[in-house]
Amino acid sequence: MNSISNIFFIIGIAFDLFGCIGLLRLPDVYNRLQSATKSVTLGTCSILLGLLLRYGFTAVGVKALLAIPLLFFSATVAAHALIRGSYKFGIKLSDKTVVDDYKDVKK
């Protein structure tokens, strides 16, 4: 069981790392939010699942399991609020952007 939970830890840390690399490499604030909020959330969820496997259904394991939905909902709402806020604030999309349907919606 310990080795399976170690595999979950490794996957989680790898995805956290990919999220951070994306944060540095991607061109504008919107793309950076994509990798910063989501790869990192899923990586953290994987680490919490590994914790559940290591401790089983004890006080620690169940708390780790409950933290997953809480993290999911708070991270989605935060990502949505940040991206909408930066659009309303007037931050430009990067040059690579191919389509923008949101600009004709009345502000």
Binding site: F15, P27, Q34, S35, K38, S39, L42, T97, D100, D101
Partner: peptide, 26 residues
């Protein structure tokens, strides 16, 4: 779907040419 999409984004972030085509769709 999450796992599949996560690998997709990881590939786009890591590959040297960065094959992204961002946009806002309705």
């Amino acid at each position: 779907e999450c796992i599949k999409a996560n690998f997709d984004v990881a590939y786009r972030v890591l590959s040297p040419k960065m094959p992204i085509k961002p946009g806002i769709v309705r």
